[in-house]
């Protein structure tokens, strides 16, 4: 299994703080690396001005990934609720692989509605990002209604679960597996598979060893924290 087997367009949805942006950025970089295709990430979050993929625009462009958002080159437009029309380009042009980073929550997912003509079932995967360490999505009972609301407001159906359970730099293998169990429970109830479980690079070997004994559905997705500057995790 690989990102090659996913649909041409992949939409990441989830509760705010679930890690959609980190997953989208990592996913887009990997798509570019593995397929060599023209790749673009479309940032549809018009509510949250912090920790946005456009902060890493320069880095991503060097690696061949275009970054499209609501920013017209000035920070003053951070909170302007309008999207760059160029976002339609990678969705329309079949030469592109497109990654869409939706806004958090059902209200953020509403923006996807305007692209419904371009986000067709045969051409588009929709991954729900789940972090079991976020209180609002810590159980299936809490997470599923939120995800269903996101489906309703976006007009899209979730096609897979992206387990992104972490505790930033304090993540353990148990966190990832706890998250996997939640992802599986949610996936079973929604009738979709767990597609990926993210794992920071330094935990990869330990996780692989563990799942050799306890197999899990889906693929391990190696994650490099692109969005989080190292000073954020200094012990003061």
């Amino acid at each position: 299994m690989s990102v090659r087997n996913d649909k041409r367009i992949v939409v990441f949805i989830g509760h705010f703080g679930s890690g959609k942006t980190e997953c989208s950025v990592n996913y887009a970089l990997r798509v570019r690396q593995e397929t060599g295709a023209k790749t673009a990430i479309a940032d549809l979050d018009i509510a949250n001005p912090f920790f946005r993929s456009r902060e890493k625009k320069e880095m991503m462009e060097k690696l061949g990934v275009e970054n499209l958002s609501n920013l017209y080159g000035k920070m003053i437009t951070d909170e302007v609720p309008a999207l760059d029309p160029a976002i339609r380009r990678p969705l329309e042009n079949k030469e592109y692989r497109a990654v869409v980073d939706a806004g958090g929550d059902p209200s953020g997912a509403k923006l996807l509605m305007q692209f419904q003509d371009l986000l067709r079932v045969d051409d588009c995967d929709v991954f729900a990002v789940v972090n079991a360490n976020r209180p609002i999505t810590a159980t299936a009972e809490k997470a599923i209604p939120l995800l269903k609301q996101m489906e309703a407001t976006s007009g899209l159906r979730i096609t897979g679960i992206f387990n992104n359970t972490h505790m930033i730099r304090q993540t353990t293998i148990d966190d990832i597996l706890k998250g996997y169990r939640l992802a599986k429970q949610i996936g079973d109830q929604l009738g979709v598979p767990v597609k990926y479980s993210s794992c920071e690079e330094h935990l990869l070997d330990a996780l692989k060893e563990r799942i050799a004994r306890e197999p899990i559905e889906g693929e391990i997705f190696p994650l490099h924290l692109e969005m989080r500057d190292s000073w954020l995790d200094q012990q003061v």
């Binding site: 705010f16 703080g17 972090n131 360490n133 976020r134 209180p135 810590a138 972490h166 505790m167 930033i168 304090q170």
Partner: peptide
């Protein structure tokens, strides 16, 4: 136990 929160929520 430890949970993950955004500053404003916490």
């Amino acid at each position: 136990e430890k949970i993950l929160m955004k500053g404003n929520e916490a």
